[in-house]
């Protein structure tokens, strides 16, 4: 056990605890804030494993954008301070399904990857990731870009008000 292993375990526990808090808290906005803790802890895990670039991408995209959008949407619609009792779902089935899925995945990963000795890769610098993305993986990367672009155009089309029905604004109206 090196110091890195210990830190990895501790931060992993923080991430799991944050994740549990997200689904167990009864306060809507706090669930979003716990998500910041969970995702931030995952970023620290990346950092500890030497994947510096992935860590900061995690912070920029997930903490800086996804969670913020989520909180923004919740606050625009309904965000009471204090517990929202009407959000409660039966806890026992959720625990059973969650625990079964988590343990199953863990068992699967240990079973499949447990006996491998993977040579620890070089540090995940931006340069290496750039080389990989624009070298070996350039085709999937471009296909994904087209998919994202299509989704973007679709989102804009959906969010636009339907074609203007009324007559254009009278000319000369002062603005």
């Amino acid at each position: 056990m090196t110091l890195q292993d210990v830190l990895l375990a501790v931060v992993g526990l923080v991430a799991v605890a944050g994740g549990v808090a997200v689904v167990s808290t009864r306060q809507l906005v706090r669930a979003g804030l716990w998500l910041v803790v969970a995702l931030g802890a995952v970023a620290v895990e990346f950092l500890l494993l030497g994947a510096e670039f992935a860590a900061w991408v995690q912070v920029l995209i997930y903490v800086g954008a996804v969670v913020v959008l989520l909180l923004f949407a919740v606050m625009l619609t309904r965000a009471p301070i204090g517990p929202s009792t009407d959000l409660d779902r039966p806890a026992l089935p959720a625990v059973l399904v969650g625990a079964a899925a988590g343990l199953g995945l863990a068992a699967l990963f240990v079973g499949v990857f447990g006996q491998f000795q993977v040579p620890s890769p070089a540090v995940g610098t931006a340069e290496r990731i750039g080389d990989a993305v624009f070298g070996d993986w350039v085709l999937p990367f471009e296909v994904l870009s087209i998919l994202l672009l299509a989704a973007l155009v679709g989102a804009i089309v959906l969010s636009r008000p339907s074609a203007p029905q009324e007559t254009p604004v009278a000319q000369g109206s002062s603005r």
């Binding site: 804030l33 670039f53 900061w56 920029l60 954008a65 606050m75 301070i81 610098t125 931006a126």
Partner: peptide
């Protein structure tokens, strides 16, 4: 820092969370 610029952009973005926390709470 090898990816200093990226670090700066990522970390500055976290400030929004504080604003939303203060505003809502």
């Amino acid at each position: 820092l090898d990816v200093g610029l990226f670090f700066v952009l990522a970390v500055v973005g976290v400030g929004v969370v504080a604003v939303l926390m203060a505003a809502w709470a």
